[in-house]
Simulated assay, not measured.
Amino acid sequence: MAQNPLSRPLTIRFQHEAQVPPQDPCRLALIRFGRENRADPARPMELTVALPPLVEPVPPELWLADEPVAAGFEDGVGYSRTDKVLFGWILLNEADFNHDMNQAAEHAYDRLLAFHRGRGFPHLLRIWNYFPNLHQEAEGLDRYQAFCLGRHRALERVPLTEGELPAATAIGTTAPGLLVYFLAGREPGVQIENPRQVSAFHYPRRYGPKSPSFSRATLKRWPDRAHLYISGTASIVGHETLHTDVLTQLDEIIENLRALIRSAGEDISNRVGDPGDLSMLKVYVRHAEDTAAVKARLEATLGDQAPAVYLRGDICRDDLLVEIEGLYA
């Protein structure tokens, strides 16, 4: 079979549903968005995330490898892989953990960390975390803080140091279940931090007993072109939330994205002049009624051809109204 003419191990893009081939031996993942989580061990390359689209239609994400993919489901983890990259996921029922997000997160990360390392892909490049009711409190912590605590304990046992933390997203969904999925490689990426922000690893304790464990972005140099995987990015400067209205928060996010692109160096900045040049933008909006204004401002700033989708999701702090993740792949 002919290889991908771009000869990269992976490309990721939005693809309209009607243009997605029903069968493709090089499909590493197909990720859709809806009102419930769906994951089928018999089709481990496909996921649906419980993030309702706010602007229809929302095309799925299509991850294409440059060679045929092997896939399976083992030890509660669905996966697909080539010789160079590994995609994997776990979907947990919180009832199995007495609805304790701390325990569920620790279990999920224990499983995933053992899985990707055990299969020869020791380096996490990007990870996504989705679960409902981020701000519901129990025993003095909200569920996002409890998630961070459980994740931190699992990472400490590996151990995974600050400089090895991947780019990440954590967003509140509309349906039960903790869904975590990831991209891992045989060789590491480069952690990118934002000079406008304190590393999340060094947040003050008032944000939770354990800091969020992620880098602001991961730069991965493949033989012919670099990828940039940008974490969920909010209106935070230093470690403080800035602004109380959604549009000013959006403007601050765009400045943070620009800073990350510059910090990635010439590998990226020679190809990506502005966030609108990224391959993909996912815009998470807390209040559905803000969508039209957010879309209009983003298009006015980045152009109406920017590859963005708009999804209903809760953000990690209750004073944050919008968040954007991006990638260049």
Score class of each variant (00 low, 15 high):
residue 131 F to R: 02
residue 45 M to W: 15
residue 172 G to A: 05
residue 271 R to H: 15
residue 28 L to P: 04
residue 172 G to T: 05
residue 173 T to N: 05
residue 304 D to S: 10
residue 194 N to S: 06
residue 115 F to G: 00
residue 240 E to Q: 11
residue 34 G to M: 09
residue 12 I to E: 09
residue 29 A to L: 08
residue 46 E to N: 06
residue 127 I to Y: 00
residue 241 T to A: 15
residue 77 V to F: 01
residue 290 D to K: 05
residue 24 D to T: 03
residue 191 Q to L: 07
residue 233 T to P: 04
residue 50 A to T: 03
residue 298 L to D: 03
residue 66 D to Y: 07
residue 220 K to T: 12
residue 251 D to Y: 01
residue 319 D to R: 10
residue 245 D to Y: 05
residue 284 Y to S: 08
residue 200 A to I: 00
residue 285 V to T: 02
residue 173 T to F: 00
residue 269 S to Q: 06
residue 123 H to Y: 14
residue 28 L to M: 14
residue 128 W to F: 13
residue 140 G to M: 06
residue 54 L to N: 02
residue 168 A to M: 13
residue 30 L to R: 14
residue 52 P to H: 07
residue 119 R to I: 00
residue 193 E to P: 02
residue 148 C to W: 14
residue 213 S to M: 15
residue 309 V to R: 07
residue 318 D to H: 11
residue 14 F to E: 04
residue 274 D to Y: 04
residue 229 Y to F: 15
residue 248 T to V: 03
residue 232 G to V: 12
residue 262 R to A: 14
residue 73 F to G: 00
residue 255 E to G: 07
residue 309 V to G: 03
residue 205 R to T: 06
residue 63 W to A: 12
residue 143 R to N: 12
residue 65 A to K: 04
residue 230 I to S: 11
residue 67 E to S: 06
residue 212 P to N: 06
residue 290 D to A: 08
residue 223 P to F: 00
residue 176 P to E: 08
residue 107 H to R: 06
residue 294 V to A: 05
residue 116 H to C: 03
residue 124 L to Y: 06
residue 70 A to H: 06
residue 281 L to K: 03
residue 84 K to D: 13
residue 98 N to P: 03
residue 4 N to D: 13
residue 137 E to V: 07
residue 228 L to K: 11
residue 322 V to T: 07
residue 136 Q to W: 01
